[in-house]
Design a protein around this nucleic acid. Structure first.
Lengths: 219, 219
DNA sequence: GGCATGATTATACACGCGTATAACAAACGG
DNA sequence: CCGTTTGTTATACGCGTGTATAATCATGCC
């Protein structure tokens, strides 16, 4: 009497791939890259290890797919934030910034996941291209939002401003996620909005009325 | 005739420990955390693997020591930058910022090293304390520099400004290191200085005359 | 200059990793 | 309802990992 062979259901290629990618992301976010072993990923995704090699040529390919999905998801969340919001340029910019500095984007797991892939990004040209595309897409969205503001600008000015605002948001994203205890609730968003305001020479804080979670949180 | 036993010299505990720590940092910077195996570290440090356990109770302890050394070194380089420079508050602040956005601090290896430890920082309370101390020390230096500026300030203002400037510098540090090709030489420093200027309401670019590598690099 | 000390090397072990391949069974067409 | 296909499981292999322990020899002391 040996243990019965495990029962299973056949599923679509798409659902299996996304389950494996999600499992990989979760494990890296929780325990760093070394926690995302083939066996752990399979268990998390509810399959046996061998199946990974049926959908991905190697573990490395799964890793790349997971990174691509991460970056796509993060830029998508930023774009979503400016979809439903009102037409005023300041409101749209404020919503975009706030969305990047609030869960689920502002999240320690996301930062650890992002950081865990960093060295692979530098050594793998394929991942480097993904990273660069995502970074430039985010920055470009930011720059376009900045260019719609009612201001007079010098040539080249908005590029520098977009780089600066992007860096500011990135830095707040990392620190706010890693040391949440150090900051009061909403403080990260407030600092982000007022600093971007200073860089661009306007007042985004006056356009936050329709932002969620923004009652009276200024420290 | 078997191969002769390897010759060696006895060295001080301090030199062996620092050699092992440096080897660890180099390997993580070059190939990520998984490249820093016990055997690779030993080879890089010019010893055999067993010696690591003679100076560190476990590989994990060596890892922690390497992270501590990294953070201490980075904050020290920032402090160094404001030592020799002139007494003007703006000049000192500008020198501090520029030093953080230039090699050897602005360096892809350093970013990869920093990122490689991130998940351990989150899971190990000891490393978390090191991270928090280093972050707050850096931010505090920044805040003190800001407070010496000739300006009128509201209570709590400089804290928020220090957080913002710190985040901006961090973001530029990461992006400038990871995508150096995307930026013109000196562009990162220029953007850092002018953005901090905007946040603080002054003009640091007028106080960069004694900065190295700052001839005519404004894009 | 021989001897004790312990820094350093050498060897071995158990374990987990990614990978390869064979056995099985769930779904589908006839 | 049987046969084929192929998604899925099961098993095994080789390798590299961190660790433990024994052997050795460089060094300082008397």
């Amino acid at each position: 009497m040996q243990p019965a062979r495990r029962l299973y259901r056949r599923e679509s290629e798409e659902s299996r791939r996304s389950a494996l990618i999600s499992a990989t992301q979760e494990l890296v976010a929780e325990g760093g890259p070394e926690a995302a072993t083939v066996r752990a990923i399979a268990e998390r995704a509810g399959v046996t290890p061998g199946l990974i090699r049926h959908y991905f040529q190697s573990k490395d390919e799964l890793t790349r797919a997971a990174y691509r999905a991460l970056m796509d998801g993060m830029t998508a969340k930023g774009s979503d934030a400016i979809e439903g919001v009102g037409a005023g340029p300041e409101e749209r910019l404020a919503a975009f910034i706030a969305a990047s500095l609030r869960p689920p984007v502002l999240d320690a797991g996301a930062v650890v996941l992002w950081a865990g892939y960093m060295h692979k990004v530098r050594s793998d040209p394929d991942l480097m291209a993904v990273h660069e595309a995502a970074y430039l897409a985010y920055r470009d969205t930011l720059q376009k939002l900045i260019e719609t503001l009612p201001r007079a600008t010098r040539p080249g000015q908005t590029r520098a401003e977009a780089i600066a605002c992007n860096a500011l948001i990135d830095g707040l994203w990392v620190e706010g996620s890693l040391l949440p205890v150090t900051f009061a609730p909403g403080e990260i968003i407030t600092i982000g909005l007022s600093s971007v305001s200073a860089i661009l020479g306007l007042d985004l804080m006056a356009h936050t009325s329709m932002l969620p979670d923004f009652g009276k949180s200024l420290p």
